[in-house]
């Protein structure tokens, strides 16, 4: 589904080159849920931006669905994102002038969905994220957690084959996190591929696989062990 080969990103801010990502190899199967973890400055956001074509790579290759995409023009990437990729930004990046409903419907409309379908899908998503009553609010009136959920809904509005998310739960309290976890689980079960940068272990724990970055390199890439448990007693030791 998604493959990166020897991916490098060098920022040349104020003359001093900064190696944000140094020669990274990553292969993600269709339908897989991958969590990317690592301390700040380890290149997580840069990686996910490059995978979504939002930031051009310095060198290396990116393949999506068997096609090489790192050579695409900016417009080529835009068309690709429109069809296949949903993106959740760390800073939410809701369009300030549009209502929550319009924000969520926008990508679907852009992909050519009829306005009615787009509205139905939006209602569904907002309902799952307990945001139905905020549909007509403007992003400025929402709390950080609400904005974050709207951003997630917008990224999913198009049922993208690939969901890229950068810290999608940073501002959520535990109750809202539960809504988000449930929705992500559903998306995952539906066969959509998810690549997510996160610090939040609750979200990361949903993933099939966790990739740890340090200084722009992968230091660990493996599956999360899974066992069948019967009750809380097996997990929590109450003294």
């Amino acid at each position: 589904m998604l493959k990166a080969h020897n991916l490098v990103k060098i920022y040349a801010a104020s003359g001093v080159p900064v190696h944000a990502v140094r020669g990274l190899d990553l292969e993600i199967e269709a339908g897989e849920f991958v969590a990317i973890m690592g301390p700040s400055g380890s290149g997580k956001s840069t990686l996910i931006h490059m995978l979504g074509g939002l930031d051009p790579r310095t060198s290396g290759e990116i393949w999506l669905d068997g096609k090489r995409v790192d050579t695409l023009s900016e417009s080529g990437w835009a068309l690709l994102r429109r069809k296949k990729v949903g993106f959740v930004f760390q800073g939410f990046n809701l369009v300030a002038n549009m209502t929550v409903a319009d924000n969520v419907e926008l990508p679907a409309l852009l992909a050519g969905t009829s306005p009615r379908e787009a509205r139905e899908r939006r209602e569904q998503l907002l309902d799952k994220l307990s945001l139905s009553d905020r549909a007509e609010a403007s992003p400025g009136q929402l709390s950080g957690g609400e904005q974050q959920r709207v951003a997630l809904a917008r990224a999913l509005a198009n049922r993208p084959a690939l969901l890229l998310a950068d810290e999608p739960t940073g501002n959520l309290d535990s109750r809202n996190t539960r809504d988000v976890l449930r929705l992500l689980g559903e998306v995952h079960r539906g066969g959509q591929t998810i690549v997510m940068v996160t610090h939040d272990a609750r979200v990361a724990a949903l993933a099939d696989r966790v990739v740890s970055l340090l200084d722009g390199e992968i230091v660990d890439d493996g599956r999360i062990p899974r066992r069948k448990i019967a009750g809380a007693g097996e997990v929590i030791d109450l003294r």
């Binding site: 417009s75 835009a78 994102r81 429109r82 930004f89 369009v95 990508p107």
Partner: peptide
């Protein structure tokens, strides 16, 4: 910022 967001959603430069 908003324009950048539009591009991230799939609007081309043109």
């Amino acid at each position: 910022r908003d324009l950048a967001t539009l591009k991230s959603l799939g609007f081309t430069r043109g």
